[in-house]
């Protein structure tokens, strides 16, 4: 350890290192004059800072409390506002989890449908007939099956096992990334030397 990373000496000075880290620093200090001088400077500064006295309030506790009581009564209870950024930390993982569940249930459903031969084709053609029978919805089949190919709703019935796995894996990765970001923001890790 050198003075290239003086924060660690500060952490040692503030007794924020674990016993092993403390031992490493102490071993280093035996042979490093520069670091000992550095810590001595910190110690002197602390003594000086401690010598600065604080202030005493001009108001008595009773008067202070009376003023608080008066001001809180006047202001009333404020409505609780949750900032959007804070809400997102909870909403995003919940949405991802819900999406995972929806895809899973959809996977089971399509799996069951596929067990009956020709059932998916039957659903698609039934849907088309229903849509064409309804007045004013003649544009819908074009939207659902553009160019006569299987897109839109029909494509969902083509959703095979591999597609399901890829989607679920992508959502799981997104969820992990989100949790990692959350952990990074609210990190509780110990100091590593």
């Amino acid at each position: 350890m050198t003075l290239d990373h003086p924060e660690w000496l500060d952490a040692y000075f503030d007794q924020e290192l674990n016993p092993i880290q403390t031992h490493i620093v102490e071993q280093h200090l035996i042979s490093c004059e520069q670091c000992r001088v550095y810590l001595e400077g910190r110690d002197n500064l602390r003594k000086e800072l401690q010598s600065l006295s604080g202030i005493i309030s001009s108001k008595s506790n009773q008067r202070f409390l009376d003023e608080i009581r008066l001001r809180t009564q006047r202001r009333g209870v404020e409505t609780i506002r949750i900032p959007l950024a804070k809400l997102l930390w909870y909403l995003v993982p919940i949405t991802l989890l819900l999406a995972l569940n929806v895809f899973q249930i959809y996977g089971w459903f399509t799996g069951l449908v596929d067990l009956i031969p020709g059932s998916s084709q039957f659903i698609v053609t039934s849907l088309l007939r229903l849509i064409s029978a309804a007045d004013g919805l003649s544009w819908l089949p074009t939207l659902l099956f553009p160019g006569g190919n299987l897109f839109g709703i029909a494509a969902l019935f083509q959703w095979n096992f591999l597609n399901q796995i890829i989607t679920v894996a992508a959502l799981a990765v997104l969820y992990c990334v989100w949790m990692a970001l959350w952990l990074l923001k609210n990190q509780r890790q110990s100091l590593n030397l």
């Binding site: 003086p6 924060e7 660690w8 500060d10 952490a11 503030d14 910190r42 500064l45």
Partner: peptide
Amino acid sequence: MSRLNYAR
């Protein structure tokens, strides 16, 4: 840590 070091 870095802010504390800078301040001191």
